[in-house]
Design a protein around this nucleic acid. Structure first.
Length: 206
DNA sequence: ACATTAAGTGATT
DNA sequence: AATCACTTAATGT
């Protein structure tokens, strides 16, 4: 197992346990990792790629909460793991992603045994909580055009690429708006010289 | 050539 | 800011 990239995070003993009990999994873009209502059996550790975490309302509309990328895991999942409750969120792969699935049963013993695991879990809670706060005030305080701008920049940063392959419809569902509105806002941004639009692509200028 | 999907636009609420 | 109704353009079969 290629654990080199995790070395800075965990102490050697823990690394070898991860090596022994973790299951490496490759998932493709669009795959659903965890769905709402599912019981969590594994803690996913992201090695490469990114996952988006979203919530769904009663009428089936989705709303994006945050992204999880390398070296992180989903705090909502951790929570569900410990409490043994069903998932409150859906996790969908943003891009082709590789991750290590760690059986949830190790959570407890590792927390007791390994300082680096405790730190890791804590940092993740903190990180996700901040992301969640960002999502909340984005929803309540920002207008749609500002949210859209933030969304695009975040996405570009995530995949380290100023040219996004995404449709207006995908953006609309992530921000839970409608395609027409997104198209218009993007068009305005293009006129303002912020972007270059194409079919399935958005190129960010600066 | 035809169907499908993405994006652009005016009018209306 | 959302929805409708329609157009135009790009892509797949």
């Amino acid at each position: 197992m290629n654990l080199g990239s995790l070395k800075p995070f965990f102490e050697p003993h823990l690394l070898s346990e991860i090596d022994r009990f973790g299951i490496v999994k490759q998932v493709k873009k669009g795959d659903i990792l965890i769905d709402i209502g599912e019981q969590i059996q594994f803690i996913p550790l992201i090695i490469e790629g990114a996952v988006k975490v979203l919530r769904e309302d009663a009428s089936g509309d989705e709303i994006l909460l945050y992204f999880v990328d390398f070296g992180n895991t989903c705090a909502m999942t951790l929570n569900c793991c410990m409490e043994n409750t069903p998932s409150e969120i859906r996790a969908v792969c943003e891009a082709d992603t590789s991750l290590i699935m760690i059986p949830a049963t190790y959570m407890d013993s590792w927390l007791a045994k390994y300082k680096s695991w405790r730190i890791f879990i804590f940092d993740n809670f903190q990180g996700r909580l901040n992301e969640l706060l960002k999502a909340v005030d984005s929803l309540t305080f920002l207008k749609l055009d500002e949210r859209l701008e933030r969304y695009i920049n975040e996405k570009a940063e995530l995949q380290k690429n100023k040219k996004l392959n995404i449709t207006h419809l995908e953006i609309a569902t992530d921000l839970n708006s409608s395609r027409v509105v997104i198209s218009r806002l993007l068009k305005k941004m293009e006129k303002d010289g912020l972007l270059l639009l194409g079919r399935n692509t958005i190129q960010i200028l600066n």
